[in-house]
């Protein structure tokens, strides 16, 4: 699904990603953990195609295509989805209208028939139910006046509607109370599928109790320092990151 090789990227002339290697197979869930400022959001922004990041070395291959050559919207049409760490508010742009435009742009791209208003509303209602998002949020401006937790839930709702092949969840669990976390996790688990891969960036092992990852990576100082299974997350929670760095330095 996704293959990242020796990825170096800088922001404003400063190197943030210093040689990332990561391979994610179809249907897999990978968790990425790491200290603040280590480059986790930078990695997800580079994958989603945000401006302002300069890739100086390396490649990102998605479904066999050169992902870095694609515009952000083309990536979206091809099934890449980023749930933002800090979703922006866009007053005046209707949540549902945005999604309809997004869904139909992707369908056009794939040569499929666009959904009409009725079909779309049906889809949206069903997905809103899945993440227990109140119907009133559908007609509001994108994230306009949403609480932190509501914004995160809206991201998962959008993911459910857009049905991506590769979803990057950047700290979607941060700022969620325990009920909201359970709901979001349920949404993600429902979307688990053999042809859908998920990258979850998180600081908290508790998310992984709800969504079980296949692989856990530690990203620190712009590099993947360690890769393991679920137990690695538990160990990180107990011991912090310093021992990983020490291990790396020794190696």
């Amino acid at each position: 699904m996704l293959k990242i090789e020796n990825l170096h990227a800088s922001v404003a002339g400063k190197e943030i990603l210093k040689g990332i290697n990561l391979t994610i197979g179809a249907g897999e869930i990978h968790a990425i953990m790491g200290p603040n400022g280590s480059g986790k959001s930078t990695l997800s922004n580079v994958i989603a195609g945000r401006d302002g990041y300069e890739v100086t070395q390396g490649t990102v291959t998605y479904k066999g295509h050169d992902l870095l050559a694609m515009e952000p919207e083309e990536r979206a049409w091809e099934g890449v989805f980023l749930a933002f760490q800090y979703p922006v508010e866009i007053p005046g742009v209707n949540n549902t209208y945005l999604l309809k435009a997004g869904v139909n742009a992707a369908r056009r791209h794939r040569g499929e028939q666009e959904l009409d208003a009725m079909e779309f509303m049906q889809l949206v209602r069903e997905k809103a139910k899945l993440v227990e998002l109140d119907q009133s949020f559908l007609s509001r401006g994108v994230n306009e006046g949403f609480s932190g937790g509501e914004k995160k839930r809206n991201e998962i709702f959008q993911m459910a509607v857009l049905e991506p092949s590769l979803a990057l969840l950047d700290e979607t669990d941060s700022g969620l109370d325990i009920d909201a976390l359970r709901i979001v996790a349920k949404g993600v688990n429902t979307l688990r599928a053999a042809d859908r891969s998920i990258i979850m960036i998180t600081h908290y092992q508790r998310l992984l109790d709800y969504i079980e990852p296949d692989v856990v990576h530690v990203l620190a100082d712009g590099k993947i320092l360690k890769t393991g299974d679920k137990s690695l997350a538990l160990e990180l929670e107990e011991r912090g990151y310093d021992w990983v760095r020490a291990e790396e330095a020794a190696a």
Binding site: A48, G49, R50, D51, E71, P72, E73, R75, A76, W77, F81, L82, F84, P87, V88, I90, V93, L98, L99, A101, G102, V103, A105, A106, V142, Q158, L162
Partner: peptide, 17 residues
């Protein structure tokens, strides 16, 4: 960028905003 990441073209995103 948010709008583009949801599949809107650059022109559509500008128009919507």
């Amino acid at each position: 960028f948010y709008l583009k990441s949801r599949g809107l073209s650059g022109d559509e995103a500008k128009q919507m905003l």
